[in-house]
Structure formats: structure tokens, C-alpha cells
Design a protein around this nucleic acid. Structure first.
Length: 583
RNA sequence: CGGGGCGUGGCUCAGCCUGGUAGAGCGUUCGGUUUGGGACCGAAAGGUCGGAGGUUCGAAUCCUCUCGCCCCGACCA
């Protein structure tokens, strides 16, 4: 391509609306323009990156036997009702009506459509496994689009689905995808961490997220510095030093604590307790299938609740903190004086049932202090197993930096911000059961198809590559997804010798199979250098004065190093560099 | 949805508090001088000040409503 005729609207200054680096550079380098909140147009340069990423996705999906489809983005209501997601998706789904008044929606993912194809056509285990995928637009009416193309309402996604006759088959398909994802992100030049993730409200037995560590991300992950353990904070656990409790009292003793409202208050209160000797009591209302119940979550005073863990432990119920009036009606006291001791009886007096869930870090603890369910009063000498009717002991706590790794002896966990670029899910039979997709197995018995679902956000790959690879001058594209392999910069278009040399080299490089951008604009050299750095092409061949000596300069964007190369060797040299390590 | 901020030539912003003929820099066009890290001189084009209503002799500026965008939070199979 000739820059003089190519559309690359670079910006000299940072756009006012951009906050994160990838957003600023995508705008400044002329890759994208915003159409509305969370809706972006990909300009030619970005589309080239998009196509390169898609090519890698196709190659790696095909390598594991994937078959590419292209499904409708416009879906009828009925199919989403079959899976129950017409309701579940709530406001996140774009909905519309056709001229007859029939309900339609724009697809958020395509489990339903793929499953409906499978159930109509696949009858026998002999037709399995199948791995189906597509690269297509997804729509989500995000409550708050943000961070440029990182959190948007319309985006390109590679989504794949596996269909197997049993769990063992799913395990294999899942593992295939996992390996494919590693290859994809490696090829795209992204450093990533694979974390255990919450399967969320949609169920499923296992899921892994592929995360890029960056402050632009919205997730938090914990990673071990020695064994490689990694988990989304929604899921991560840790190893804590044991705490030795005294024998304690024969029974809890109530004592007045006027004005004490928080864990912190009680640590300072005379006769109070250190935060790790307190029991934090949180009240939630859990709703599942239209049924609500009160849930009391108990944690060590210095620990933070992980709400997703709470929700997951309640089979994906929707969970919200109880309102102050609800709490008072339930236990007769305000937040700040609540506790698990006698809570069930107290609630029952008021005609209400509660479920008590306690964090594992509280197991076996004695001589603890907690609220007395009476304003301005606490209890000391509480031994949890003796005094509190815990229904279930589960992991509810949020891991923090510096805690011990749950998988190895001497590792320490570190918590990072991260961006999700891929997610692989073992769905199991959720969709096949609800939508009636089954096959006859080897024994002639009808069984639901066992499914997996695997997604990658294309723009997120593009943006995270920028987040990871840039400097003060602009983008530094990883070779495999750079819009061009190299750029030929003619420093002065008025000098025929330079122009001719540049044109010749441009032709030769293209003939050698490289994607070449020729900067043939009537601009000063400085402007061209700045722009080339900004748009981040991996290699620049500068056509300058040395042409009369038969030399051009080869500039590497990443290292900013320059070497003189004989013109006749230039193509070979660039080819060797640009294509090295791309497979 | 709650909180905060912002809408003024293509871009970045000033002007608004205290009403009185719409400004700067960059970019664009034309002419000239330059020509290896965002050149210089001269000339020019380009704006219903997000929109509607109101107050006023007079509104970018004050008031009301409304739309849009950004940030924080809630939310986010």
C-alpha cells in the first residue's frame, strides 16, 4: 500500500476522551473511530490487524478439527426461551421487534443456535465429537461501556462449541481447546496467565480464563510466584497460618459495647478483640428461581467476603446485601451488632428462616468475639462449632497479596489486575438437556450431548497487544498481527534517486511475499518517522542519503536499533527478520 | 441505575464566574523558503458555541428541560 493513498488518520495529540493506553493509541494511530458509546468502527489499519488475528484463529481452530460456521446475529425469542436465557440475560440483551410484532434479539453468544443445529442433525455417538466455531459479531448492552474497545456493546468474537457423547470426550475437547488457545495467544505475541475461573450462574463444571496482566483490565487474579498456580479472585484460595486459640469460656458472655459499629471499632474498644479474633457477620438475600431466603455469611474479622463465591455456593443464586430494615426485622439489631450465636432461633421467633454459611478460616476457632444480635452488645468466648449452628463450611473469603499458595509449600500469592482475552468452559449438559439435544450412545441408550464453549474476543487481542507492547512513541505490534510487516520510508520525495530506490524496494519486498507500506507522502522525514513509530510497523527501511553508496537503513521498531544494509541484500534481510518465529 | 465531569472550526483547548461584534495552537488550502525525528514566513477557508424552551434591548455566557460522551461505583454466562 502507498501511504499517500491509504487512509491512516493519525492524531498528533491525545484524544480527550481516551483514558487507557490502548484506547489512546488506537485513536492516535488511526486504527479506530468511535461511533457511539461502546461502538467502534475499525479503520483499514485495524481491519488488517483484525484479519491477521482471524487468520491465526482459523488456523488453530482448524488444526484441532474445528469447522467454521457463520450463524445469524439476529435471533428469534423462542430459541432463547428454550434455554431460559431470554429471561436470564435481562437488560444485557439487545431486544427488538419485527414488523409483525414478534420478539427478536441480537445474539450475545451462540450456544442456543449451535445446539439447535446439533439436536436436529446429530443422532448417533458415531457422529461425535464435533467442534464447531465461527467468527462473528456479538452484542451486549453493557451497563457501562468503557476503556476504548475493551468493554463494548458490539464486538467480534471467535466462539467455538464442542459436542461429545460423554464427559471423557468433553475433557479431551476442552484440553484441545486449551492447547489451541495457548498457541493462538503465543502467536499473537501476548503474555498471558491461565486462571481457574468461576463458572458463574450458567453452571458448568470447569472453566479457565486466559488473562493478560494489565492495569487496563477489570478482573483481579492471584498468581503464585513459585508453582504457577493462578486463579481469578472470584475463585482463588490461599493457605493461611494457623491461629492458636485459648481454651476460652464455657459459654459466650455478653458485654456492652456502646457505639461500636465496625470490626475496627471493636479492636479499639476496651475489652474488645483483634480483628482476627472476631467473627464478621454479613446478611444477604439470595434469590433463585423466584424463591428468596436469608443467608448469613460468617468470616474472620480481618477477611473480605468474595461475593461470587457466595453466589456460586448457592448454585448460582442471585445474591444481594440485605437492607437495614430487613436486618432489623430478621435479628432485632442493626448491622454492627450482628452475630451467628442464636441467630436461627431469633429469626424463627419472627417467623423467618436463615441459612448460615461460614468461611473455612473460621473452622475450629474458639474464644472469638461477635455481635450479640442486640444493639450495642457483643459476645466474647464464642466457640464456633459449639455456639453457632453452621449449615455449611465453605470458602468465602477474598485472597490478598502475600498469602500462601494453596498448591505449594513455599509459594506466595500476588494479586494483579488483568484483562480476560479468552474463556473456555465445560458446559456439560445444560443446553443439551434444556433444548433436547441427545444422541444414542454405544449401548443404544439416549443421552444428552455433553458440550463445551470456548470464546476469544478479537478486539481485546488487538487492544491487549497494545497495552503490552508500546512505548512513548506509539504502538509496537507483535510481528504476527502487525498491519504491515515493514514500511519503506522515502525521506525526500523530491529526490528522484531516493524515490526510485524506494519504489524498487517496495516492489521487491512485495514480490517476496511481504506486506509492505510505502511512505510516499510529500512530508518531511521527521513527520514520517514519527508516524511510522506511532502505527508501530515492526521494521522500517529508510531510503536516505546513503542510497548513493548502495545502502539503506533497517530500523527495528521494538529495539529502536538501526543497521545499514546493502540495497541488494535488503529484501532477504527483511524477510528473514520479519518472518522469523511466526509459526 | 447512583455519583462526578465535559459538550465552542477536523483535533487539543481558552472564553462562561461578572451577558455586549466567537478566539488560540495544531491540522487543511494557496504561494514562497526549507528538507533525517512532528520546519519557517505570508495569505486564506472553516464554527446553527450539542439540542429545545425561557429571562433580557441583547445569551457561548444566566435559568429550565433534553440529548450525547468520559470517569468512579453498581452491573458484567
Amino acid at each position: 500500500m502507498r501511504w499517500s493513498q491509504y487512509f491512516i488518520p493519525t492524531l498528533r495529540e491525545d484524544p480527550a476522551d481516551a483514558e487507557v493506553i490502548s484506547h489512546k493509541l488506537l485513536l492516535r494511530a488511526g486504527l479506530v473511530r468511535q461511533l457511539a458509546a461502546g461502538i467502534y468502527s475499525l479503520l483499514p489499519l485495524a481491519h488488517r490487524v483484525n484479519l491477521k488475528i482471524q487468520q491465526i484463529l482459523r488456523e488453530e481452530m482448524n488444526r484441532i478439527g474445528g469447522q467454521e460456521f457463520y450463524l445469524p446475529a439476529l435471533n428469534p425469542r423462542e430459541i432463547w426461551e428454550e434455554s431460559g436465557r431470554w429471561t436470564v440475560m435481562g437488560d444485557n440483551m439487545f431486544r427488538l421487534k419485527d414488523r409483525k410484532g414478534a420478539d427478536l434479539c441480537l445474539g450475545m453468544t451462540h450456544e442456543e443456535i449451535f445446539t439447535s443445529i446439533a439436536r436436529n442433525e446429530i443422532r448417533s455417538y458415531k457422529q461425535l465429537p464435533q467442534v464447531w466455531y465461527q467468527i462473528q459479531m456479538k452484542f451486549r448492552d453493557e451497563a457501562r461501556p468503557k476503556s476504548g474497545v475493551l468493554r463494548v456493546r458490539q464486538f467480534i468474537m471467535k466462539d467455538a462449541y464442542s459436542f461429545d457423547v460423554n464427559e471423557a470426550g468433553l475433557d479431551k475437547s476442552f484440553e484441545d481447546q486449551r492447547e489451541a488457545y495457548k498457541r493462538i495467544f503465543n502467536r499473537c505475541g501476548l503474555k498471558y496467565t491461565i486462571v481457574e475461573a468461576s463458572s458463574g450462574a450458567m453452571g458448568g463444571s470447569a472453566s479457565n480464563e486466559f488473562m493478560v496482566k494489565t492495569d487496563a483490565g477489570e478482573d483481579l487474579i492471584a498468581t503464585c510466584d513459585s508453582c504457577g498456580y493462578a486463579g481469578n479472585l472470584e475463585k482463588a484460595t490461599s493457605r493461611l497460618p494457623e491461629i492458636k486459640d485459648g481454651i476460652g469460656l464455657d459459654e459466650p458472655v455478653e458485654f456492652p459495647t456502646p457505639g461500636v459499629r465496625t470490626i475496627e471499632d471493636l479492636t479499639k474498644f476496651p475489652g474488645g478483640a483483634e480483628s482476627d479474633r472476631q467473627i464478621k457477620t454479613l446478611i444477604f438475600v439470595s434469590t433463585k428461581d423466584g424463591e428468596s431466603e436469608f443467608v448469613l455469611a460468617l468470616l474472620r474479622g480481618d477477611h473480605q467476603l468474595q461475593e461470587t463465591k457466595l453466589s456460586d455456593s448457592l448454585a448460582g443464586a442471585e445474591v444481594r446485601p440485605a437492607q437495614p430494615e430487613e436486618i432489623r426485622n430478621l435479628l432485632g439489631a442493626d448491622a454492627g451488632s450482628l452475630g451467628g450465636v442464636g441467630a436461627k432461633a431469633k429469626a424463627r421467633e419472627r417467623g423467618k428462616e436463615i441459612r448460615i454459611l461460614a468461611d473455612l478460616a473460621l473452622k475450629g476457632r474458639r474464644n472469638m468475639t461477635t455481635g450479640a444480635n442486640k444493639d450495642d452488645h457483643h459476645l466474647r468466648g464464642v466457640s464456633i462449632s459449639r455456639d453457632i449452628a453452621v449449615d455449611r463450611w465453605i470458602d468465602l473469603r477474598t485472597v490478598t497479596s502475600g498469602e500462601g499458595c494453596p498448591q505449594c509449600e513455599d509459594g506466595t500469592l500476588e494479586v494483579f489486575k488483568a484483562l480476560e482475552i479468552g474463556h473456555i468452559f465445560k458446559l456439560g449438559t445444560k443446553y443439551s438437556v434444556s433444548m433436547g439435544a441427545s444422541v444414542l450412545n454405544q449401548e443404544g441408550k439416549e443421552v444428552p450431548i455433553v458440550m463445551g464453549s470456548y470464546g476469544i474476543g478479537v478486539e481485546r487481542i488487538m487492544a491487549s497487544a497494545i497495552e503490552l507492547h508500546h512505548d512513548a512513541d506509539g504502538i509496537i505490534w507483535p510481528k504476527a498481527i502487525a498491519p504491515f510487516d515493514c514500511i519503506v520510508t522515502i525521506t525526500n520525495m523530491k529526490q528522484d534517486e531516493l524515490r526510485d530506490a524506494g519504489e524498487r524496494l517496495y516492489d521487491d519486498l512485495q514480490r517476496a511475499g511481504l506486506d509492505v507500506l510505502l511512505d510516499d507522502r510529500e512530508e518531511r522525514a521527521g513527520v514520517k518517522f514519527k508516524d511510522a513509530d506511532l502505527i508501530g510497523i515492526p521494521y522500517r527501511i529508510t531510503i536516505g542519503k546513503k542510497v548513493s553508496d548502495g545502502l539503506v537503513e533497517l530500523f527495528e521498531r521494538r529495539t529502536k536499533t538501526t543497521e545499514d544494509v546493502r540495497i541488494k541484500d535488503a529484501v532477504e534481510r527483511v524477510q528473514a527478520l520479519a518472518l522469523a518465529g511466526l509459526l
